[in-house]
């Protein structure tokens, strides 16, 4: 009798919880917020260039660089570093990032630029960590640092509930930088 009841309750809960429930949420999401439901993809010139919510690799000096990624920005295989505070590899990576950003004791690197995020796909930087990179970006694009800073400031959103933390979205900021200061060789 327990076997029969198991089969019957398994069938009923599967139909409702996996079938009807998923269908309902899918219908609501696709009807009301299709952009979100599909993963907040961003297009430029009719081509998908990424997702607003997923960090992508930026290495060129004229772009804002996101936080380092333990997943190498693979959007289909996210991962954190899972390194502990006593792991020397954490120190080695920090040294590499210090060299890459040219940080000095007088101009220390913001800690977020030396650390990887939980999924390796953190799409944001704090405004100070973005402004930190403004001189490099300005030099690479041949424009004034203040102009780059202005574009960044225009991309700022406040983090709710967090005592004044300001964030910028790296991909959107780079799109705004490209729009404000077009490059001769796009993607160069």
């Amino acid at each position: 009798m327990s076997i029969a009841a198991s089969f019957r309750t398994i069938t009923a809960t599967l139909l409702v919880c996996s079938g009807l429930y998923t269908g309902l949420v899918l219908a609501v999401g696709q009807a009301l917020v299709p952009d979100i439901a599909d993963g907040q993809l961003v297009e430029r010139d009719g081509k998908v260039v990424g997702s607003r919510q997923v960090a992508q690799k930026f290495e060129a000096p004229h772009y804002l660089w996101p936080r380092p990624s333990a997943a190498d920005y693979n959007g289909a295989a996210a991962s954190g570093s899972n390194k502990s505070a006593t792991n020397p590899e954490l120190t080695e990576r920090a040294r590499a990032e210090i060299a890459r950003h040219g940080a000095t004791p007088a101009r220390p690197l913001p800690a977020e630029l030396a650390t990887t995020s939980g999924a390796g796909l953190d799409p944001h930087l704090s405004l100070p960590a973005a402004l930190y990179q403004a001189p490099r970006i300005a030099a690479a694009r041949g424009v004034a640092v203040a102009d780059v800073e202005k574009v960044m400031a225009g991309q700022t959103t406040m983090l709710p509930l967090a005592s004044g933390t300001r964030l910028v979205n790296v991909l959107e900021t780079n799109l705004a930088l490209d729009a404000a200061f077009p490059l001769k060789k796009p993607g160069g």
Binding site: L109, S117, T165
Partner: peptide
């Protein structure tokens, strides 16, 4: 792990999300 390096001393951000 960042003791003595030119990095700002904030709370531990390894494995955390900015947002």
């Amino acid at each position: 792990a960042f003791t003595g390096l030119p990095i700002t001393t904030e709370a531990n951000l390894e494995g955390k999300e900015m947002r």
